[in-house]
Computed example of a mutant assay.
Amino acid sequence: MAPYEALYGRRCRSPIGWFDLVDMDSLDTDLLRDVMEQVRMIQYRLLTAQSRQKSYADRRYIPDESHVLSLDSEELSPDFTFEEEPIAILDRQVRKLRTKKIALVKVQWKHRSVGEATWETETDMQARYPQLFKALGTFFYFMFEDEHDS
């Protein structure tokens, strides 16, 4: 069953379906020929427009090789997923809510620029990557707590 027929409960009445084989003898052949020629012209114009739009889209597409990882340089898990690793903590700030404070750290990830660093919660990062916080030392925390607590 066609989607139109399922939705509306009747067949779609397109110009092609208007003429049954039985009625062709009673219709003027010039009228039938004109209508069929118009249908062919509409089909041709639709195909031409579709082809033109596809060619524009194909010209605008530029493959970006920077998003492709080589399999030799990265370790993939057995299910072919890749987890990025943090390489540095760039900043720390404390967000104050009504009843609590949330400590955030700005993390630079491997294979990403400094501009693409993200803010993550400090507790999650400490639990997952404790080696980053051992390298920072205690001076880092005192320096930022003085700035953000005041």
Rank of each mutant, 00 (worst) to 15 (best):
A2N: 14
A2D: 15
Y4P: 00
E5M: 05
A6N: 07
A6T: 12
A6G: 02
L7S: 10
R10I: 09
I16E: 15
I16K: 13
G17F: 09
W18T: 08
F19R: 06
D20H: 12
L27A: 06
L27N: 07
D28L: 03
D30T: 13
L31A: 11
L32N: 02
D34E: 07
V35Q: 07
Q38H: 06
Q38C: 10
V39K: 11
R40F: 05
M41V: 08
M41P: 00
I42T: 05
Q43R: 13
T48C: 09
Q50T: 06
Q50N: 11
S51A: 14
R52F: 12
K54P: 01
D58A: 15
D58I: 07
R59W: 02
R59Y: 06
R60P: 00
I62T: 13
I62G: 02
S66C: 04
H67K: 14
H67E: 10
S70P: 06
L71N: 06
S73F: 03
E74N: 14
E75V: 14
E75N: 13
P78N: 06
F80A: 12
T81C: 09
T81Y: 05
E83D: 13
E84V: 05
I87S: 05
I87E: 10
A88K: 11
A88I: 02
I89F: 01
I89H: 01
R92F: 08
Q93F: 00
V94Y: 01
R95E: 10
K96M: 03
R98K: 11
T99M: 03
K100G: 01
K101A: 07
L104W: 08
V105F: 04
V105D: 03
K106D: 04
V107D: 02
Q108T: 02
Q108W: 02
H111T: 14
R112C: 11
V114N: 02
E116N: 13
T118H: 04
Q126K: 15
Q126W: 06
Q126I: 10
R128Q: 13
L132Q: 08
K134R: 13
G137T: 05
T138S: 15
F142H: 09
F142R: 12
F142S: 12
M143P: 00
F144K: 05
E145M: 05
E145G: 01
D146C: 07
E147C: 03
H148D: 14
H148K: 09
D149K: 11
D149T: 13
D149R: 14
